[in-house]
């Protein structure tokens, strides 16, 4: 555990809780892509199956359980409790174009051709692109609520901090995982355009809106 890893995890947790609270307090999931949230629920489920096979630490187990629980709670709020506010018409990204190629890649490029390892690899690849339906939705409507941009910033920051964590681990622990690193770089790059808008607009008190 190093400082980048810990702040990355906390940033990830903050993102998840910001989104849950935003939906709960406003009683609305307007502007939130349900498809991205389903993809994140699949990501956590397929990655954390190791909860059943190996114990690493109390921290590790509790964070995994919290992430999975929050992911399903978010999906429940969007598709059940507040489904009347769900903006399905604008959430039109075709997720099969992500899930099918990512599944194929996980079968082809992995560390070990076993069921759990392929699911772990699938979750790493899927996480790297799971935010695309949300970004697509924002580009389609041309705007995002400020609280939604805080959510996205924390989510992007988490993977950027993990990149620093991997550099740290490479130097001080001689450990690196090429699958996680390549997917993590892809994931972080997808947020760059958003980071720019967040810093130049949202942090200066303006609403995030895209030119028509």
């Amino acid at each position: 555990m190093n400082v980048f890893r810990l702040t990355g995890d906390l940033s990830h947790l903050a993102a998840i809780i910001i989104l849950l609270l935003k939906i709960w307090k406003s009683r609305s999931c307007a502007g939130i892509s349900g498809k991205s949230q389903i993809l994140f629920a699949i990501v956590f489920t397929t990655r954390y199956l190791d909860l059943l096979t190996s114990f690493i630490s109390i921290y590790n187990t509790s964070m995994k359980v919290i992430y999975i629980g929050c992911a399903y709670a978010t999906v429940y709020l969007i598709y059940m409790k507040f489904r009347a506010t769900y903006d399905g018409n604008h959430d039109s990204f075709r997720v099969e174009f992500l899930v099918v190629p990512v599944g194929g890649l996980a079968v082809l490029v992995n560390h070990d051709f076993s069921f759990l390892e392929i699911l772990w690899t699938f979750s790493i690849y899927l996480e790297s692109v799971a935010i695309l339906p949300q970004l697509f939705m924002i580009s389609k409507t041309g705007e995002a609520e400020t609280i939604t941009t805080h959510y996205l910033f924390c989510l992007g920051l988490y993977r950027a901090l993990y990149l620093l964590n991997w550099i740290w681990r490479f130097y001080f622990e001689s450990f690196f995982d090429m699958i996680a690193i390549v997917a993590g770089v892809v994931q972080t790059v997808l947020y760059c355009d958003f980071f720019y808008l967040y810093i130049t607009k949202v942090l200066k008190g303006k609403k995030l809106s895209l030119p028509a």
């Binding site: 995890d9 690493i56 995994k64 560390h111 450990f175 995982d177 996680a180």
Partner: peptide
Amino acid sequence: SPELLRHDEL
């Protein structure tokens, strides 16, 4: 093992 090191990360 490298496998456990990977599964330590979230």
